[in-house]
Design a protein around this nucleic acid. Structure first.
Length: 913
RNA sequence: GGGCCCAUAGCUCAGUUGGUCAGAGCGCCACGUUUACACCGUGGAUGUCGGGGGUUCAAGUCCCUCUGGGCCCACCA
């Protein structure tokens, strides 16, 4: 060590032409090497700030919206770190679930066929979606996959291997982007939602839920996506407007008594009335193909038209089923004919009627969305069975067409179908309307059925601090609107399996109500390949043996545990206790109902606490048409391309200019401004450091003494900056990064345009050594503070400058956050904050004189008279020498005026001009 | 049907509890070879603060209403 006492030769020189180029790579490597952002294990909870980073879905590509919102979080992280907190800032990758499966199918040209055996030498037919895919852009390659021979069926294990292989590739690219953007993530704290630790955590939480009765199985009507052949949860529903048609169909009354029937039968059908004189009822339906699944007709109990019919039976056209006419308040008298057909199941209302009116089940759709081969109970007549045979095996679409033809032939269709557009429920990732199919599924209590739990969850929503606060309402609305528990099982492949087996009875059937669970220390398990204790592998599927639960968990069932996963609730008690509940959950507004809510549910059930104290909700990015920028549309700009084009600090500046919860326009103009700011920081710093190199050799940025600053203008500048520090700090503490940036930036431009110009001559020594030392110290103090104020926003430019200055190699991002006291140690002797403003105003007046005379700013003025508000003249006089030097004015008269503005009264150019 | 957010200069946006609040930046115009910076600097112009009511001594700022955007929720046969 001692042989390097003179470190000057190691000191990075201030470059002649500072540049932003290459700073991202340089400092990413520097920070990695120094472990600048590595979390120090063992820090007490009170000194930690922990962040529940959203794990991005690696199967998609990152877009500008991600860059936007992750920057917001990084600003918080950097501010907290500099404020003395040890920041726990992990990064997860959401590689679990359907999006990855779908991407793998397209990328490699395969599909999962669970019945196939594993092929250890399998080579996928495609790579990147096409054998010759030129584009690296995953979004572009999606959607036009594997035309040639169709996807190749492969085993579940092969499929999962491909999922993991592709995810790993994506994760590398994502990490590269985040590093380039300058996220101060601790890259030693990463996880994947499909990795061993996340699976074990998911399974452990589930087993605890099961033991406490919060998780349960139920055979029930389930919202079902026929394309993906899986159940979906309420939170994953979206309504989409679809074309459809009302079909008016007549139901004849079943003869009950001979005397009542006779005259009625004589009456002619009258489709205009319902019921008509013969007691025929006309319903309108958009789903005629569900006629064989009809179990009742329902009308409002107060509907006078149907009073006579309640309790009677009618016959379903074509299929001959006899169904009752029943009353229920959900039926709407003014909708259609006021009477509806109840099917098992056409929509969610059918489920309510079915449940509350104790109607029978007549399911006709299978998991693939096709009409089941066997007619349901009740379709017993030869004619009915014959009609059914004509639609068995058809898709819903084809069956509808066929039924309409049959109805038309039989004369039971009244008029022609009336086309309409109506909202239909879809799985948010699906392409076909959802069906409702009775299946056995796992549910988790979420307050949908348990009112006491719902109240607790609402209380947690109140307890949580929201930025901005109005986002709380979205949570409340969602929780208040829940009408069922959370369906967490999915009939998919790439996910966390349920850690459950079932005994197989003597007839070969699984006994679902006696699940076999593993011990907690065995997790994670895969019941499809692992054998429960007490059984032998060869007993799988055999009578008297066991069988694994075939399903995997909903991806939200894992990502709802990100706080528990990231803080290692399961396997590192010390880390968990020093980071949980976490301080911050940053996320997008559209997943409050899913991710945020489900995370609150899991922590409430497991820890009886909030999972995090603060939620910061970022808005969307809007494209120039004011529409949400989505992958399908706005993705012509890739995030990495943006960062390379403008520079990361510039893009961060744009992101930082938008407040939390507010949608922001994609605006390259703002990025150019941000780039200009970063360059300005480099250049202004170069100027300031040119004095300190000579005058304060060896002194670091924090070694300057404000007590040495005596000049009124200098003191005024420092006092003004002190208020900026106070304001920026307060704003950042309140998650208002926009305001912090704004006040800092505004001051910085004044600092550059006015202060630096005013003191330039003096700093060069033109007013003597004392004045020079004073100005130089003030410049240095201001720069040391400004750099730190900018550091969370512009981590690269500020770090670069810091390295020129502070040659011990300490990162600016571990420096203490600036305080007003560094600039104004003694409040009583604080400078007059007005001097800088007035001096700047007078200087502007002199510049205006030159601008109007169309001469260079360097031109000399022989004399000038400037009117200054009387109460400010003293302040102006205090800076008069600096003003004259900066304005190159030989004779300056400061005239006290009664006005409130600073005005140029007269100016005379020097004769030599 | 219910709820939330938004509407301020050509563009993107600030305007905290009603009283220098009519602002900033970009863009635009003019000028300037200025040793921190031409990825620059200096100066300048720009608005019935969506419409209409109301409260008040005073309203972008509070209340009502209308219009136009965006988003979320809902049991739309």
């Amino acid at each position: 060590m001692s042989q390097h006492r003179d470190l000057r030769h190691l000191r990075p020189a201030v470059p002649d032409r500072p540049s932003l180029d290459g700073l991202e790579t340089k400092w990413d490597q520097g920070w990695s090497a120094q472990g600048t952002y590595t979390f120090r294990l063992g820090t007490p909870r009170a000194e930690v700030f922990s962040i529940d980073t959203p794990p991005p879905t690696v199967s998609g590509s990152l877009h500008v919206g991600h860059v936007f919102s992750y920057t917001h979080t990084d600003i918080v992280a950097r501010f907290q770190r500099m404020s003395g907190k040890e920041v726990f800032y992990p990064m997860g990758w959401d590689d679990n679930g359907l999006p990855t499966e779908r991407r793998v199918q397209n990328y490699y040209g395969v599909r999962c066929e669970p019945s196939l055996p594993h092929d250890p030498d399998f080579v996928p037919p495609l790579e990147g979606g096409q054998p010759s895919a030129a584009s690296q852009d995953s979004a572009a390659s999606q959607g036009k996959a594997a035309k040639p021979a169709g996807p190749v069926p492969i085993s579940r294990r092969n499929f999962v291997e491909l999922c993991q292989r592709l995810s790993a590739e994506d994760e590398k690219q994502f990490e590269a982007l985040w590093r380039h953007l300058g996220l101060s993530v601790d890259w030693t704290q990463t996880y994947q939602t499909i990795d061993r630790h996340a699976r074990a955590t998911s399974q452990l939480a589930f087993l605890r839920n099961l033991a406490r009765g919060e998780a349960y199985q139920q055979l029930a009507p389930t919202l079902w996506d026929v394309t993906f052949r899986t159940a979906v949860a309420q939170a994953e529903l979206v309504d989409r407007d679809q074309p459809g048609a009302y079909h008016r169909i007549g139901f004849a009354r079943v003869d009950q008594t001979a005397d009542a029937a006779k005259p009625a039968d004589a009456a002619k059908p009258d489709p205009a009335a319902s019921p008509d004189a013969a007691g025929r009822v006309y319903i309108e339906t958009t789903r005629p193909e569900l006629l064989p699944a009809c179990v009742a007709l329902v009308a409002h109990p107060d509907d006078q038209r149907y009073q006579e019919l309640f309790g009677t039976r009618v016959r379903v056209p074509l299929f001959g089923t006899e169904v009752p006419v029943v009353a229920h308040p959900l039926a709407e008298p003014d909708k259609g004919s006021g009477i509806a057909m109840v099917c098992t199941f056409g929509d969610v209302t059918d489920v309510i009627w079915w449940r509350e009116l104790h109607l029978p089940t007549r399911a006709i759709l299978g998991w693939d969305g096709r009409v089941l081969p066997e007619a349901p109970m009740g379709v017993d007549s030869p004619a009915g069975r014959s009609a059914y045979a004509q639609i068995a095996g058809l898709t819903v679409f084809s069956a509808r067409k066929r039924v309409v033809e049959l109805l038309r032939d039989s004369g039971e269709l009244v008029g022609e179908p009336q086309p309409i557009t109506h909202p239909v429920k879809f799985f948010e990732k699906g392409e076909k309307p959802l069906e409702i199919i009775p299946t056995r599924q796992w549910y988790l209590a979420n307050g949908g059925t348990d009112q006491a739990l719902r109240r607790r969850l609402l209380a947690r929503g109140d307890e949580l601090t929201w930025y901005p606060d109005f986002m709380r309402v979205r949570y409340q609305n969602w929780v208040e609107g829940l009408n069922s528990d959370w369906l967490i099982s999915r009939q998919r492949f790439f996910g966390v399996p349920f850690p459950v087996w079932y005994p197989v009875d003597q007839f070969g059937h699984p006994v679902h109500d006696r699940p076999i669970v593993p011990a907690e220390d065995q997790l994670p398990v895969d019941p499809a390949s692992d054998t429960p204790s007490g059984y032998r592998p060869d007993q799988r599927g055999k009578p008297g043996g066991f069988i694994g639960d075939p399903d995997v968990m909903d991806t939200w069932a894992t990502s709802s545990l990100t706080p528990q996963i990231a803080t290692h609730w399961r396997d590192d008690q010390a880390l968990h206790e020093s980071t949980f509940p976490m301080d911050l959950r940053p996320q997008a507004q559209d997943i409050i109902r899913t991710w945020l809510f489900s995370t609150v549910v899991r922590a409430e059930l497991e820890q009886r606490s909030l999972p995090f104290y603060n939620a910061a909700i970022s808005g969307f990015i809007l494209d120039p048409d004011r529409k949400k920028m989505s992958k399908s549309k706005g993705n012509v700009v890739t995030p990495m391309g943006l960062l390379e084009q403008h520079g990361s600090d510039a893009v961060r500046y744009w992101a930082a200019s938008a407040r939390l919860g507010t949608d922001a326009a994609f605006e390259p103009g703002q990025m150019k401004v941000g780039r200009r700011l970063a360059i300005k920081i480099l250049n202004a710093s170069k100027f300031v450091l040119s004095f300190l190199a000579a005058g304060a050799e060896g002194a670091g940025p924090l070694a300057l003494d404000p007590a040495r600053v005596t000049d009124p203008l200098d003191r005024s500048m420092l006092a003004t900056l002190a208020t900026v520090v106070a304001t920026a700090t307060e704003a950042l503490e309140a998650y208002d990064h926009t305001r912090a940036l704004e006040v800092t930036e505004t001051f910085f431009w004044t600092f550059c345009d006015d202060y630096i110009e005013l003191v330039k001559a003096r700093a060069h020594g033109e007013a003597g050594p004392e004045g020079a030392a004073c100005a130089q110290t003030a410049l240095g103090l201001a720069l040391a503070v400004l750099l730190r104020l900018f550091a969370p926003f512009q981590p690269f430019a500020t770090e670069e400058v810091w390295s020129w200055w502070h040659h011990q190699g300490q990162s600016i991002h571990r420096q203490p956050w600036p305080t007003p006291g560094e600039l104004v140690p003694d409040q009583a002797a604080a400078g007059d904050a007005g001097v800088l403003a007035v001096a700047g105003g007078v200087l502007s007046a002199l510049r205006k004189a030159k601008s109007e005379a169309k001469v260079s700013m360097r031109a000399e003025l022989a004399s000038a008279t400037v009117a200054v508000p009387a109460e400010l003249t003293a302040a102006a006089v205090a800076a008069k020498a600096d003003i004259m030097a900066a304005g190159r004015t030989a004779e300056l008269v400061l005239a006290a005026s009664g006005t409130e503005t600073i005005d140029l009264l007269s100016a005379t150019l020097s004769p030599s001009q």
